[in-house]
Design a protein around this nucleic acid. Structure first.
Length: 627
DNA sequence: GATTTCACGTA
DNA sequence: CGTACGTGAAATCC
């Protein structure tokens, strides 16, 4: 960078420019692209590692721009040099929001923004002797003649020189401007648009939120979850025995646990307890016939045979041994006593956050191992009855919105339906999940009568999904019912050959009816998916809105979100701030609810149970509104 | 070696 | 014949 560039940049930076695209190379050097909206000029710089770290830190402190980057990788790079950006725009995360797909590499983002068919995205081709002529244009230009990004650049060639890094940042800025414009467009393609219910300024607001959630994911990966290894090892030892020191010891332990089950069988009879088919024939031998050997099915057989109880114990121990045992601890707990996994801001279906390393499915019995560091506390909060409250908000049903005024919203619903609370709860959940059988069926008709707007919203989603039409969440996330796994495995009955015309079916009536039944069931499954996705997806957006507000407002107190669990937040903070953060969690919840509320409509009330604790397992749930 | 099936934990 | 997710083990496919 020349001296005049530098002074120009400083002058310009002091002009309070709000948007800065950033890329970071492997060696810690980086490039920035800055766009001055008032003067409509763009400016780029590349900086070596030292300059870059200083510049980014200074920019964040003095201006707090909205950082634009291609993916969470950049967020992680900034964390690595000690910068925690307040605002960002994650091109990949926003791409997922707009398109409903999961893949969001720069090539896909770029193609979508330029109306290029993703199927035509080029990949790096091995040298072909017969096709050495490359007509894609100048190889030093990251954009090919056909408009696509050059695959070599996407795969890392952008990183090869300072000039390229600068160009890559400029392209990110260009993608941002296109994407931000797209986010403001009303979505005219989705089937729920006629309901006219999308969040105010919906997709831009959601894009900010999704980007911040992705940043939060980078922090969750960086910070990890406070974890007491000694406590965990003790818990594991209580279930599967002490840590084996040799393979022989391990084998002996395993054999002993096998024997505890097999001793209930006639002498000589043996089986591999890990194999479901062998368990099944084992049970058949003692006169028990089951379609599968899942735990809930075996639970019901408790007491019918002495084999069942020890087998369930074996399963429980095997689960800990294989998935949440010593190896799990060794693989995912760092020397700093933090449990780390990788986080994603949105799954491929409705947009919930996901995590690896068992962070989202850790058995409750291991929760005592999640312990705040010395001098710190956890502030834990979970949303009460989040899905029915979200349904009230996104559907705009005035009667259901009125019910959310209660701490336990199933109580007023039950009163209105003249049924027990338990029945009302099952019916509401059944309506959201697409349950078709059981006790809730009767009360379901009551719901149709008393809450027609909410039920109509769910039915519209169900029917649109069955027809293979894309949906949109309240926040504007596209839910793909076409070109997704849901569509691939669930063919549209309208475009599919009738089951009766199946050649196999002509000679076999059973096959015909089987095929027809199969098709019906798959279409119904797709309807259920759509019905559920509009609620689950909106709930995920609401949760993320809450979480990123807590992240932003809690930063000044050094509060760190260390776990997100769909409707639950765990915040780690020095103990003197515990009560402040507890209040903050509730304030942020109210703000999230306010941001969601459409003007001139009955507001929907959201509630959370908040507690200050030192162990995750200490969370008291008895004071919470009943779930 | 990659994919599928079963199982099971969480929400 | 409620929806998602990630994980591990074994079987299965290539």
């Amino acid at each position: 960078m020349t001296a005049s560039d530098w002074s120009d940049w400083r002058e310009w930076r002091d002009g309070q420019t709000a948007t800065v695209a950033v890329v970071v190379a492997d060696d810690g050097s980086g490039a920035l692209a800055l766009h001055d909206d008032s003067a409509d000029r763009q400016f780029g710089v590349w900086l070596d590692a030292t300059e870059f770290a200083t510049a980014v830190d200074e920019l964040e402190a003095r201006i707090g721009p909205r950082w634009v980057w291609w993916s969470k990788t950049t967020a992680s790079s900034l964390l690595a040099i000690g910068v925690r950006p307040r605002r960002c725009w994650d091109l990949g995360a926003v791409h997922r929001l707009l398109t409903g797909g999961w893949r969001a590499d720069p090539a896909r983002v770029w193609a979508h923004l330029h109306q290029l068919d993703p199927a035509t995205i080029p990949s790096v081709q091995p040298l072909d002797l017969f096709h050495q002529v490359d007509d894609s244009g100048d190889e030093t230009d990251p954009i090919r003649r056909d408009g696509h990004l050059r695959p070599e650049w996407v795969d890392g060639a952008w990183n090869e020189s300072p000039e390229r890094r600068e160009r890559w940042a400029a392209l990110a800025m260009e993608a941002f401007r296109l994407q931000a414009a797209t986010a403001d467009d009303p979505d005219t393609r989705t089937e729920l648009r006629h309901l006219g219910r999308q969040r105010r300024g919906h997709r831009r607001a959601t894009a900010f939120c999704e980007s911040a959630a992705e940043m939060l994911c980078a922090e969750l990966e960086h910070d990890g979850l406070p974890f007491d290894r000694a406590v965990a090892e003790e818990l594991v030892a209580g279930i599967v025995g002490p840590r084996p020191r040799t393979q022989a010891e391990d084998d002996a332990l395993l054999a002993r646990r096998d024997r505890a089950v097999l001793q209930h069988l006639p002498a000589g009879v043996t089986a591999d307890l890990r194999r479901a088919d062998q368990i099944k024939s084992l049970l058949r031998r003692v006169g028990i016939e089951v379609p599968d050997t899942r735990a809930w099915r075996l639970e019901r057989l408790r007491g019918t045979h002495p084999l069942i109880e020890p087998l369930l114990d074996w399963r429980r121990a095997e689960r800990i041994r294989t998935t949440f045992g010593y190896r799990w601890i060794d693989d995912h707990v760092g020397h700093d006593g933090r449990l780390r996994g990788s986080w994603s801001g949105a799954d491929g279906a409705a947009g919930r956050m996901t995590a690896t390393a068992g962070l989202h499915n850790m058995p409750a019995e291991l929760r005592p191992a999640i312990v705040a560091e010395a001098g710190h506390v956890f502030v834990r909060a979970d949303l009460g009855q989040i899905e029915p409250r979200v349904l009230a908000a996104v559907s705009g049903d005035p009667a259901l919105a009125a019910a959310t005024a209660a701490d336990d919203m199933y109580a007023p619903v039950a009163e209105r339906l003249h049924v027990d609370r338990e029945i009302a709860k099952v019916a509401v959940l059944g309506a959201m999940y697409g349950q078709t059988t059981g006790k809730g069926a009767e009360a379901l008709r009551g719901l149709e009568r008393e809450y027609p707007v909410a039920m109509g919203y769910l039915r519209a989603a169900d029917e649109a999904a069955q027809g293979g039409h894309d949906l949109s969440t309240y926040g504007g996330r596209r839910l793909r019912m076409s070109g997704s796994s849901h569509a691939a495995s669930n063919p549209d009955p309208a475009s599919n050959p009738d089951a009766a015309s199946n050649p196999d079916a002509a000679s076999n009536p059973d096959a015909a009816s089987n095929a027809a039944r199969d098709l019906r069931s798959r279409v119904a499954a797709r309807g259920r998916f759509g019905r559920n996705a509009v609620v689950q997806g909106a709930a995920a957006e609401f949760f993320k809105t809450w979480a990123v507000l807590v992240r932003a407002r809690g930063a000044a107190s050094g509060a760190r979100i260390v776990l997100c669990l769909h409707d639950e937040l765990l915040v780690h903070v020095v103990d003197s701030h515990g009560d402040n953060i507890a209040s903050l969690l509730d304030e942020c919840l109210q703000e999230a609810a306010h941001r969601w509320a459409p003007p001139a409509e009955r507001p929907v009330r959201f509630v959370a149970d908040v507690s200050v604790i030192t162990r995750w397992s200490d969370a008291k749930t008895t004071l919470a509104a009943p779930s």
